[in-house]
Design a protein around this nucleic acid. Structure first.
Lengths: 343, 343
DNA sequence: CTGAAAGCGCTAACAG
DNA sequence: CTGTTAGCGCTTTCAG
């Protein structure tokens, strides 16, 4: 490491005080325009770079947002992060990202790290098996704004950015019903998470409204992974009363299941219709293309960060906004079209 | 923000000096074990958290690694990042992540930010159109270790973590030749990037070795996106002399092309065989499943960070390791099997 | 518009 | 094993 240039070096060379240099560098209004220019050009010349730590230490702000997600490597989540990054970057914030790998224990450790690093705000999408929320208590106590997205909780009174999973589940199921399905299987994730529970409730509501018997409600909970999709196909094949429609809460799981069924000779949508969730890339690759719910990941990320930053800068209480609901949309494709000319 | 607890508060309560408290908290060996315990339990009791900025300011280290990637939301890149995060987290490092969105200008801005934030090391995978490397000069000058992964350059004498793209391209092409293909089209990305250029060179080498005429070498450069795959299908359909094999440097592009061709009535692999690259999820969803090159993203991330941290802690010169090559592997699936019982 | 002075919280000599 | 002292580089009153 070479010697770093400080504002004192610049001050000395320009016969100014460090205070003036500091102000000039930060575009303080009460500084002579000429002085500012002299300082800034000298700074460039010397390759000066501001020392963020000294500045943070002094200002007691970090310009950093913490983000805890279940996994970095899912199509949806990486879109969210990409959206977040764009907004954060533009506003001069940094992002400290970590993944819980769907484990509450990791989530806890990550939260601790974020806490010690004094992030200005924390954005969280909960792990699969998080039950207690104690690890977020410190943030509340220190008044560090906390915001949940996608996998939210209303345990704490923090705002959340979500889609209307209930409605999405309801509409997906209605669509299958409209295509003539009578026995619709719903496959979803851990029901402790709002996203999965709400989708299921929407599904149930639609089934009930259709006047089908209680037996028509059939739910399987798994981890919605690709592997789970293959297992799911075997389960379906082993059923006595086979479903004629399947609504899976994740495209990845759905397409893997479809693929296995097709390989085993099933015809989709004739034997069984499919609806997925997420509008993941794979939904357009599978044959027949998968009907799915489009889920605005990138936008969710943008909104999460802009809400947070807005709060941070304007100092509006975050608690005021209780939750923001984004629009999702059912995209009908061949995997569920059983009626001629059906949309 | 409530008042933060400092080591002075602890020192006062325990009738010790701040220095002793600091040492106790950092498990300094030359501290009485009992004192240490007293300090640590008091710290817990008060909800003390170390102020990273003060510490960094003093120690002149950040425990932070900068990462610049073309895009966060690709299957491959998010795997890399997931791998990086695991190793970094374990070693007590943080990651500052930003995306260039394939633009050299963004990459430059990101590098500047990383520089100002004084990352301890920088990990980069180059944008599509980066030509000049001036924006990394500051790191070299200040002796901040710089490491490239996947999309590397040997312009600077920095180590790189890569796979053998030449060999992978060669083997993919050899495979298509072995399946009886005579006119193999190669579709790749910007040839300025090693990954694409090397794959193409491997392709050419295989074609030449097979004793085919110069006309057998046919290369299309696009941005390897899903959309580019659809365009590609149209291009292929419009060709007089149609290829009987296509080797695409990205699965995403390949499957979208396949899908469009299949929809247009082409039979794969009979009319045209396909080989992709990345072993992306979609490669197993398309029908027929896509032969591809498995690319160890997670491992590449782990290795990149562990190499970096190793260097940072042991202070071995990074320049010594010029590059690390990971093993990639051709996975043969139905999209390219034209011979009975061929593997 | 500019300067002087103090202090953010921590660590590392150095001294005992 | 512990304390004293100084200072990392910056921002911000307060005073001119």
């Amino acid at each position: 490491m070479e010697k770093e240039v400080t504002i004192y070096d610049i001050a000395e060379l320009l016969q100014l005080s460090a205070a003036t240099v500091s102000r000039a560098l930060n575009d303080h209004p009460a500084i002579n325009i000429k002085t500012r220019q002299r300082v800034q050009s000298k700074a460039n010349e010397l390759g000066y770079r501001s020392n963020t730590f000294a500045s943070n230490l002094r200002k007691k702000t970090t310009q950093t947002l913490g983000v805890i997600v279940p996994r970095l490597n899912s199509h949806f989540m990486s879109s969210v992060l990409a959206g977040m990054e764009v907004v954060a970057n533009k506003a001069g914030y940094h992002m400290l990202i970590s993944q819980s790998l769907e484990s509450a224990a990791n989530e806890k450790a990550n939260a601790r790290t974020m806490f010690n690093n004094r992030v200005d705000g924390l954005l969280v999408s909960l792990a699969y098996d998080t039950e207690s929320y104690d690890h977020f208590a410190g943030f509340i106590k220190k008044k560090v704004p906390l915001l949940f997205f996608d996998r939210v909780t209303d345990f704490m009174e923090c705002p959340g950015i979500v889609i209307d999973n209930y409605k999405a589940g309801y509409e997906a199921t209605r669509h299958l019903l409209a295509q003539g399905c009578q026995q619709i299987l719903h496959v979803t994730g851990n029901l402790r998470r709002n996203v999965y529970n709400d989708r299921m409730e929407g599904y149930k509501k639609a089934i009930q409204e259709a006047g089908l018997s209680e037996r028509a409600v059939q739910v399987i909970v798994n981890d919605l992974s690709a592997e789970a999709g293959v297992v799911l196909a075997r389960q379906i094949m082993a059923m006595e009363q086979k479903p004629d429609g399947v609504f899976v809460a994740s495209d990845i799981c759905a397409v893997n299941c479809m693929r296995a069924l097709i390989d085993a000779g099933y015809r989709i949508p004739d034997d069984v219709a499919f609806v997925g969730f997420n509008n993941d890339h794979v939904s357009q690759i599978i044959d027949p293309k998968l009907t799915t719910v489009d889920y605005p990941g990138h936008q969710m990320g943008e909104l999460a960060v802009s809400t947070m930053i807005n709060h941070l800068t304007s100092n509006q209480p975050l608690g005021a906004t209780s939750s923001i609901v984004l629009r999702s949309q059912l995209i009908v494709r061949a995997s569920s079209k059983r009626l001629l000319g059906a949309d």
